[in-house]
Design a protein around this nucleic acid. Sequence first.
DNA 1: TATGAATGAGAGTTCATTCAT
DNA 2: GATGAATGAACTCTCATTCAT
Lengths: 221, 221, 221, 221
Amino acid sequence: MTALGANDIVEAQVENPELIDRRRGQIVAAAIKLFGARGYYTVTIKDIAREAGISPGLIYQYFKNKEDVLLLVLLERLDRYWRDVQAAADKEKRPVRRLFAAYAAYCGVVDANKEATILAYRSFRSLDADRRKHVLKRERDIHNLMAGYVEACRAAGLLREVDIDLVCAQLASMAHAWALQSWRFDQSTDLKAYVSQSFDLLAGGFLTGAGKRKAAKLNPE
Amino acid sequence: MTALGANDIVEAQVENPELIDRRRGQIVAAAIKLFGARGYYTVTIKDIAREAGISPGLIYQYFKNKEDVLLLVLLERLDRYWRDVQAAADKEKRPVRRLFAAYAAYCGVVDANKEATILAYRSFRSLDADRRKHVLKRERDIHNLMAGYVEACRAAGLLREVDIDLVCAQLASMAHAWALQSWRFDQSTDLKAYVSQSFDLLAGGFLTGAGKRKAAKLNPE
Amino acid sequence: MTALGANDIVEAQVENPELIDRRRGQIVAAAIKLFGARGYYTVTIKDIAREAGISPGLIYQYFKNKEDVLLLVLLERLDRYWRDVQAAADKEKRPVRRLFAAYAAYCGVVDANKEATILAYRSFRSLDADRRKHVLKRERDIHNLMAGYVEACRAAGLLREVDIDLVCAQLASMAHAWALQSWRFDQSTDLKAYVSQSFDLLAGGFLTGAGKRKAAKLNPE
Amino acid sequence: MTALGANDIVEAQVENPELIDRRRGQIVAAAIKLFGARGYYTVTIKDIAREAGISPGLIYQYFKNKEDVLLLVLLERLDRYWRDVQAAADKEKRPVRRLFAAYAAYCGVVDANKEATILAYRSFRSLDADRRKHVLKRERDIHNLMAGYVEACRAAGLLREVDIDLVCAQLASMAHAWALQSWRFDQSTDLKAYVSQSFDLLAGGFLTGAGKRKAAKLNPE
DNA sequence: TATGAATGAGAGTTCATTCAT
DNA sequence: GATGAATGAACTCTCATTCAT
């Protein structure tokens, strides 16, 4: 189930689950668009309602308050990340290729949702402790997903003796950097070049010689 | 001159430059504390005034509006980063050691100002276009500072053929990750371990064999 | 349509036109009372809300800002003047009688709205250029209405060769004087006496001998 | 003595009478300029201080508060009116000529102080009851001055049987109309034409046949 | 279920006035 | 006598939330 129908996390006044899914979909889509462009605090409930084509009052039938809208927005994004990354990784069998595919997918989804990625950094701390936990839970899911791919490289003897969490932090940071620190990069750099260059750099640090040779084959330049 | 007396960027109604420095120091210190803990939007001018031990009206003698307070808060942090990093780097002559010293100092100042680092990510986009430029200018100064240290490694033949901007992005991202993604790391990891491990990982990616041997000597474990 | 529903001049957040009319009626009535007594600047939005029996926020559903409230207050008064004057004039056919009826009605509406008349003088300049234009437009409508009645006297050969705009200025000034310069008049003077005396004086200046004889019949003292 | 040194009306913290006169002169001149242009409420004490070239605090050495500044501004204007009108009237001996000279001078001083004239209408009601009395006292002085000139016409048998206060109200209203209702007049009308035309109209109402013949000689067109 | 008018607490900001220097 | 930094009450306006329809 997607984050939207998550009645255990976010309560609704409405019973019909399909309606909940549909309305929350509308509202979250509108909110992602607006929060992404202008941030959480400068967007009003009225703005979201107008963008979603419904009345302000209706939002409170599907969300307890504004913060809950933000929560689902953030969870929804993380769900999408998780699905995209896994789907891409599943297409590859060999460990280094799989890790690369996962990283490339991660960068790809960041690129396709730049605003949402930035929003996550901006607005995570606008949530209260309880809601943060839910978001962190999903962050950790993604972390674990990636950690599995790294671990597989180790099992194949292709990984130097390094801390896997640290490697995951690096991979995620660099994927995020594409959205968050774009000012550092030459404007002419495109996503594809960024992915291969940054992976080369990162992999150079954590793969063994054998691993690097496999990685090298990914970019036949 | 520090960012506080920056009359060309932020205007004051008061003439006396020493007073401006002192009062802005008070106000920015209070604002860093509160913004850091609760974010820009949930902190009120009255909160800042109370924390600084002055009246709300007085803030407007030294700042045109709330956004200008945020601007100086962000600039002040970047100034501090720049100074700390440079001071640490200056103590080392050899390129790899110098780069390491710079990175370690960067991580150190992030650690000492975790809240402020997070704030930068959260609140940069709350600034209007003009104010963002000022912040980006200082970000770039730090970027260039680091790029210089990386470049020196290349001049000494210790750098693989890699994009320097990308390397800088990695270094900065990992330093920031210490504050922003601490949930990824084993709670027992301390700053010192983090610095050496992450540098080892990064340097493994961008240094030549000779460079790595020099880097290895930095952590005589 | 009265000035209150004037959606083209003052924008409302609320759609329902009847509601707009009703709420604006409430708000403008309260504002006239308070502005009239204490002037524009010393009356607060909260005062108006309290007087109107609504919440402060609601005023901003029907007016963009405080200045717009003042605008409708001033327009509303001018509308009332126009309607009262025309209604009274329509009851008389012969030119001098009609002009007198119009003047008497003008004085009457000034008397019934002394505070509002004074307010117009006080507060017109508190409006910005755009809003002033709207008020002047209605002032001119009244001017033209009166000018028509004076012109009819001329057509009937009862008017000396005088500037009609000047005559209108005199008529209006004297009507306003009843509210604005009441300190000049013996406290025992009542409205009726004021109207006949001042009209006698004014008409003596602009009517021909024949016209004055007709005017004389109006006051059979 | 002019209104400025009026220690019995407005209190000063400073003893030296010359200084009081000089400083109040500075302050009132600045205030007239600013109040005239922008009205009482939108001008701040700081604005006045800046315009007068002194510090805000100093104003409170010469005035108890902002309202007292307004009081002296209004009194000062009335003093000037009184002096100018009397000076002009004194140059003529014959009653109708004298009255005309007084009226022309009145219009002249209105023309030279349009903003201040408008200010009087706007801001008189911003004063409290006590201060209003002082202003009304001087208004009455001018009224009486004019009434004397009208009375002289009656003594010479040149006045119809009319109420003198009403005549004074007319004369004052028309003089003020030059500033307050300029929108009614053809833009090409100049002051001189206005004075002669309006006096012709007014005098036509209150003078006898003999009086009118004398008045006619004033405008040898 | 859906609407949107209504509420009212609280935000940023201004400014008359005071007072230490 | 003169300065101008400092105060804090009070302003206009916004907006999350509620509730009658």
